[in-house]
Amino acid sequence: MSTPGLSAETEASRASRRGGEGLGARLSDLLWRRPALLLALLLGPPLLWLGVVYLGSLFALLAQSFFSIDEFTGQIRREFTLKTYGELLTPANLDIIRRTVQTAALVTVTAAVIAFPIAYYAARYARGRWKAVFYLGVMLPLWSSYLVKVYSWKLILAKEGILNWAFGKLGLTWALEAYLSLPGVGGNSLSTSPTGTFLVFVYVWLPFMILPIQASLERVPASMLEASGDLGARPAQTFRHVILPLAFPGVIAGSIFTFSLTLGDYIIPQIIGTSARFIGQAVYQHQGTAGNIPLAAAFAVVPIAIMGLYLWWAKRRGAFDAL
């Protein structure tokens, strides 16, 4: 038996041990009682940043695209007009858009084809140490500067580069020459050909394709593949009817990265490839040296519109159903 005084003391000491009474403790209590306040504190700053600063600038940009430039004075005329969008339809500008979209599509498809087996191996077979090697191998290129990678590729693809040297040693210089003489894909050397631009794009964006596909394949239990085989499907049929549909959201997620990154890039086509421009370069030049902000804005809307259409198509194809 204890005296009432003693037991009250015990109560108090227990209360102070549990949680305490400091400022931090009182803050914890307040946030525990008001979860909405905690949510506001957590989401407020990023929402302010994304919502006001980012979306605000985006809308400012969009608004600019409905203005036009006065040919005589070079001043921006702040009146609503679709004239600037009309300029996008000149053959030269259409050519830029066509080239960019075509390259982005080709890069995306190629990256998906290369990424799938790698992602599949990592998701199904790699365990422990090999899994670590996989992640390291995929992420390592992301650790070095993008410019360093692009310039390394310039060296690799150059006429004096290692690829030309390798073709020479293998006695295949004639094949490379024949390829480079093809119109549309060839050029003086690989580093000044559309093929070079394409190769570097595929290399630089590949990790963004591998990781989402791998994540989606990780979620397919082995029993599902066994069930397919059990029901009579050959491995190729299981791939077609089970693996591919279930990995499709991953492929779409990856393609959103590779496609939009290629659409907006202006460094790679500037360093590697022909002098023919991509959308990103056009935007860069129009808002910079040319001082034609409305046309730059209209060009910038093109990738946004294309991505919107692409996502709409992907949704209709059921790409997000399995999410």
């Binding site: 239990p221 066994e226 069930a227 059990d230 089970v242 549909p245 059921g318 399995a322």
Partner: peptide
């Protein structure tokens, strides 16, 4: 010539 009912059912979610 056999078929299996799996412990986790392994139904195709798509």
């Amino acid at each position: 010539p056999v078929n299996t009912v799996f412990q986790d059912y392994a139904l195709f979610p798509h």
